[in-house]
Design a protein around this nucleic acid. Sequence first.
RNA 1: GGCGGUAUCGUCUAGGGGACUAGGACGCGGCCCUCUCAAGGCUGUAACACGGGUUCGAAUCCCGUUACCGCUACCA
Length: 463
Amino acid sequence: MGGARTALFNWLFARRYEGQFLLRVEDTDKARGTEESTRAIFEGMRWLGLDWDEEVVHQGDNVARHRADAERMLANGHAYRCFCTAAELDERRKAAEAGGGAFKYDRRCDRLDPTEVQQRLAVGAPSVVRFRVPEGTTGWTDLVHGEISFPNKDIEDFVVLRTDATPIYNLAVVSDDIAMRITVVMRGDDHISNTPKQVMLYRALGAELPQFAHLPMILGADGKKLSKRHGATAVADWQHEGILPQAMVNFLALLGWSPGGDFAEVMTLDELIAKFNADGLLKKASIFDVKKLEWMNGQHLARMPIERLEPLVTAILLQEGLATVPELAALDDRYRRALEILRTRVRSVTDLAMQVPTYLRVSYDESAVTKAWSTVADAIHVVDLAHETVSAASWDPQAIEHSLRAVAEAQGLAVGRVLGPIRMALTGSVSSPSISEVMQILGRDESLSRLGQAKSFLAGRRA
RNA sequence: GGCGGUAUCGUCUAGGGGACUAGGACGCGGCCCUCUCAAGGCUGUAACACGGGUUCGAAUCCCGUUACCGCUACCA
């Protein structure tokens, strides 16, 4: 989710200011990224509607340039060869920490005589390339945080090229950003401490600095960084929960960004693009509030064009085996009418789909039966009454409902005592849209048939 | 440990020295509407982390403390 939010902000920023949004897979560390996870990222972005300009760049394809950049720094004095092995460094680190101090590389290889370096290289001694951190302080103006600076003395000479000549993240990123002519870098604020190193690399490589914007993290309900433990953490998980992409985008956009002042929280993508600005970027980490996401989803569910909602519901219905194509076709325009009256009653597309089968067939849930038809004799009486009314009258659900109410009043019964049992007969449930709406969608024949079915069921109960 | 970042209702936030008895949204409670369930309307609950300054005046500026997070790798 954090990655999705970061991508969204980059995308919104690019779209708002008519820039370009570029996607790069940072796979420097072969052990990390798998093909599957990058595919999940692409799919998640597509689902959210975040399209990118230009072809995806794979960092791994640019290793030659990363090396060349390291060589350049070696040549212009911004970097040097270091022959200390990882094991040696480890030992020194441990020793320093045991003494209560912090370890910092002592630059001993920087003091090596040039001929000594040549000799070692000649005999094939393994080495890494280290960046020579200059004196002074390094800072930048962050779009989110304003001025940030670090004393260089707190930064050790860091490795930029490994023993196997593969680049370290910080070098690869800077090298690629320069090559791709990146002007704005928006990323998680866990990168703030990396930034001074990158700033130094830009300078050593003779490149202009991009603008940096460090976005706050997204946390789980417990205030800890979002992880698998928090349940649905991947974009696809929410898709399967029945969350709409536009709701997700809307929700995510408001996590760490605010248009400021009084504003309506439910916004379309276009509205978000129009309002998005760097000023509204917030500094504080925020907690992923599932309840609010669900509310937001309900809002979008109720507002989106019905013709876009329908196919989403159909897909779930078919996939879950809750309905068949002929069944839905038989419903005809009553399908959309059903969706129309149901959409304000649910908060997810899946919940909406679950409601549809009621208009295809009835089934009685035992607990609903005991609740709605608690007294069998009364239930029979009411259902029978309804059956008579429906069959006698001309088909006008509204009028029928009115006459049922009239009957209830005449007999001194609360309206609910009459419509409740009928609702059960019609929908097999204790809750539904209004009786006349339900009858409208079911139609006269189906309504009659369900009333009849309820009569015989209740007769069986009495016996 | 060092360095860096953050700190307003439970949550997301408005606020950028007086307009703040701190506003909105989600959630939660109540009321209205109502055949049920929702939706909708009205309403209640609830916060400036703490301590010092600066100032006539501080949620807003400065300093410190605390808490949380990040970096401190031949991870990204």
